[in-house]
Amino acid sequence: MSKRPDDFEVRRQHLKNLTDEELERRFWQLAEEIVKPLVELAYNHTSPAVERSVLLRMGFSSIEAKAIVEGVMKLGLLGKGAGNVVYRLAKKKNLPIREAGLLLVEGKAWEEVPGLFEGGAANA
């Protein structure tokens, strides 16, 4: 295996006159550029597993979360977020979040869910 030539001095030319503060700022700028596509992907894409995980953190059991996610998927609203569906239903019905989710688990109130997202960007 051949030894890699040392070209550090050549590669650092554009950085050598920067202060520590400027180097740190440059580092965070580049780090942000690297993760930006990942952040956008996370904001714009979800999966049943992610949505079940959200519901688990909202206090639902795995069986309850599975039922809610399946219902949300049947309505084609997974992109809106299963937790968001439960939250909006709770808000509309003036119920605690858990009670609203349990209504969905029991097969109730699903007819109201599509209407929770009508009305444009304010409701998206």
Rank of each mutant, 00 (worst) to 15 (best):
residue 1 M to G: 14
residue 2 S to H: 10
residue 2 S to I: 10
residue 4 R to Y: 09
residue 5 P to K: 04
residue 8 F to Y: 12
residue 8 F to H: 12
residue 10 V to H: 14
residue 10 V to D: 15
residue 10 V to G: 06
residue 11 R to S: 07
residue 13 Q to G: 07
residue 14 H to V: 12
residue 15 L to P: 09
residue 16 K to T: 10
residue 17 N to M: 08
residue 17 N to R: 11
residue 17 N to F: 03
residue 17 N to V: 03
residue 19 T to M: 03
residue 19 T to E: 03
residue 20 D to K: 07
residue 21 E to S: 12
residue 23 L to C: 10
residue 23 L to G: 05
residue 23 L to Q: 07
residue 24 E to H: 05
residue 24 E to K: 08
residue 25 R to E: 14
residue 25 R to Q: 09
residue 25 R to D: 13
residue 26 R to A: 13
residue 30 L to K: 11
residue 30 L to H: 09
residue 32 E to W: 08
residue 34 I to P: 00
residue 35 V to W: 11
residue 36 K to L: 14
residue 36 K to Q: 14
residue 39 V to R: 15
residue 40 E to T: 11
residue 41 L to T: 09
residue 42 A to T: 04
residue 42 A to H: 06
residue 42 A to E: 07
residue 43 Y to H: 13
residue 43 Y to I: 15
residue 44 N to P: 01
residue 44 N to T: 13
residue 44 N to G: 14
residue 45 H to W: 08
residue 45 H to R: 14
residue 45 H to D: 01
residue 47 S to D: 04
residue 48 P to M: 03
residue 49 A to M: 12
residue 49 A to S: 14
residue 50 V to A: 10
residue 50 V to W: 03
residue 50 V to P: 00
residue 50 V to K: 10
residue 50 V to T: 10
residue 50 V to E: 01
residue 50 V to F: 05
residue 51 E to F: 04
residue 51 E to Y: 03
residue 52 R to I: 10
residue 53 S to E: 13
residue 53 S to C: 13
residue 53 S to G: 15
residue 53 S to L: 15
residue 54 V to Q: 02
residue 54 V to C: 06
residue 55 L to C: 02
residue 55 L to T: 00
residue 55 L to E: 01
residue 56 L to W: 02
residue 56 L to S: 11
residue 57 R to L: 12
residue 59 G to L: 03
residue 60 F to Y: 02
residue 61 S to C: 10
residue 63 I to N: 11
residue 63 I to K: 12
residue 64 E to I: 00
residue 64 E to N: 02
residue 64 E to K: 00
residue 65 A to K: 00
residue 67 A to P: 02
residue 68 I to Q: 01
residue 69 V to A: 06
residue 69 V to Q: 03
residue 69 V to Y: 05
residue 69 V to R: 01
residue 70 E to G: 14
residue 70 E to W: 03
residue 71 G to W: 00
residue 71 G to C: 04
residue 71 G to H: 01
residue 72 V to T: 07
residue 73 M to S: 14
residue 76 G to P: 02
residue 76 G to R: 05
residue 77 L to N: 09
residue 78 L to W: 07
residue 80 K to I: 05
residue 80 K to D: 02
residue 81 G to I: 00
residue 82 A to K: 03
residue 82 A to D: 02
residue 83 G to A: 14
residue 84 N to M: 12
residue 84 N to E: 14
residue 85 V to T: 12
residue 86 V to Q: 04
residue 86 V to W: 06
residue 86 V to N: 06
residue 86 V to T: 08
residue 87 Y to A: 14
residue 87 Y to P: 03
residue 88 R to H: 13
residue 88 R to T: 03
residue 88 R to C: 05
residue 89 L to H: 06
residue 89 L to P: 11
residue 90 A to S: 15
residue 90 A to F: 09
residue 90 A to D: 09
residue 91 K to I: 04
residue 94 N to C: 09
residue 94 N to V: 13
residue 97 I to A: 11
residue 98 R to D: 11
residue 98 R to M: 12
residue 99 E to M: 11
residue 99 E to R: 08
residue 101 G to N: 01
residue 103 L to V: 01
residue 106 E to M: 08
residue 106 E to A: 14
residue 107 G to S: 07
residue 108 K to Q: 14
residue 109 A to D: 11
residue 110 W to E: 05
residue 111 E to T: 05
residue 112 E to N: 04
residue 114 P to F: 00
residue 114 P to L: 00
residue 116 L to G: 07
residue 117 F to N: 06
residue 118 E to T: 15
residue 118 E to D: 08
residue 120 G to Y: 00
residue 121 A to S: 15
residue 122 A to F: 03
residue 122 A to R: 10
residue 123 N to L: 11
residue 124 A to L: 13
residue 124 A to Y: 04
